[in-house]
Nucleic acid binder design. Structure first.
Lengths: 228, 228
DNA sequence: CGTTCAAATTTGGTATACCGAAATTTGTTG
DNA sequence: CAACAAATTTCGGTATACCAAATTTGAACG
């Protein structure tokens, strides 16, 4: 975390704060205040905010403070719809193009999942899950595709996270992923479509439920003003 | 073209220059020179360059001048692969979600195509074609999807343009689009998949051919140094 | 004549100063 | 006391100044 550019580092910091909930949806990100707080000047902070804007995590408004995105249910549903399509496409391509080494790496991730399922906390398990799906995307050998995959993954990171920590389902976490790896090994496009479909189609309503819940909750506490 | 932000206007200007070939692939975009040339300061120009970088039209290099992207054949092929998938997905969703008014608008575009096919020049016809596909994408009623669609469309703009102007095929331009609209009207998902598939699967190799050609040609004239 | 190393220049990155618009606050009036 | 208007403050947008890294150039030495 050292050799990246300064704006990228700032973006990482802000992204973490947003995803961890320290910067809550709707909060404004004032250039001067945040620049001072992070000990940098407005220019790189500004650029960092633009990076997050393209990722969909913050929202730019003309002649106004950027705010942390407060995605509507519709937006989250749209994002999920796109992410699922990208992931299915990646999986099918990976079926044809993944190297044996890449499949081995994915299998190893599933092994780790199975081993640690009962011991690690939700956050760690979630990170492992993320690495599996990122690995699947890169196994499609199409960097453009992997790029937009990671964009939508980070846009939905918080939603997925909230969804994941409230439900720990061994079947989904371990079995589904095993089936995906098995289908990859067999180079069986239909099988991977089925396996991933089962995995993801269950994920979608979960995420949307969590978000719906969070938004209702937020509007209930709507008296809170956005601070600093 | 007035109320946009200054960086967006600059990005538009640069994008035009890149796509029209005035700024050729490999040319460096020096901040000071271009800022002076456009009569603005470095800050908004800098931001404009970042915009184009996220669109894939320019390439940022750490501690070096940004250069106009010179996409490899592989990159173009990857982009085409993604664009096709996005467009097929959009079409299928549009089949279920497009309003009658949206379908009418698309039909009107096809009428314009048919009417003017023999009179307008390639550039204009190309613009009409672009508006059709953009309309199709927005008829899917998923802004996230429409966003990445337009990103890949602009990333491939120049390639598609070069491909389009060298081949004018009434069958493809008019008939294919008519079939797509007909399938939309009938809400026939299979039909639209077939129609769009026929349209696009022919497009892909054309684009890749043109790019392969251009790259070979460029390496043949490799003595030219990037000026300014 | 070629190679190497250092000085100068170029250039992107960052900080800061300035400007105009928008919002907030304050004061006055009905 | 409420409401509207003016002044002040706040804040993003833009320009500019400064800095450090990198490239280039040229001179000196082999």
């Amino acid at each position: 975390m050292a050799d990246q550019t300064l704006p990228a580092q700032i973006a990482d910091q802000l992204r973490r704060d947003i995803l961890r909930g320290i910067l809550r949806p709707g909060m404004s990100i004032k250039e001067r205040d945040n620049a001072d707080k992070l000990g940098v000047s407005r220019t790189p902070l500004r650029e960092a905010v633009r990076i997050l804007a393209t990722e969909g995590l913050v929202e730019l408004r003309p002649a106004r403070s950027p705010i942390v995105s407060i995605p509507s249910v519709k937006q989250v549903a749209d994002d999920v719809e796109v992410l699922l399509a990208i992931e299915k496409m990646s999986a099918e391509l990976a079926c044809a193009r993944a190297t044996e080494a890449e499949i081995d790496a994915l299998a190893a991730i599933v092994d780790v999942m199975a081993d640690r399922f009962d011991t690690v906390d939700a956050v760690e398990m979630f990170e492992i899950d993320m690495s599996f799906h990122a690995g699947l995307a890169s196994a499609a050998h199409n960097p453009s595709l992997a790029d937009i995959h990671s964009t939508f993954l980070s846009r939905l990171w918080r939603s997925r996270f909230l969804s994941a920590i409230q439900r720990r389902n061994r079947e989904r976490v371990v079995d589904h992923h095993s089936q995906i790896v098995a289908a990859l090994r067999a180079r069986d496009t239909d099988a991977i479509r089925t396996a991933l479909g089962a995995h993801l189609d269950r994920l979608a309503p979960d995420i949307i439920n969590v978000i719906t819940q969070e938004i209702e909750q937020a509007s209930a506490t709507a008296d809170r003003k956005d601070d600093l």
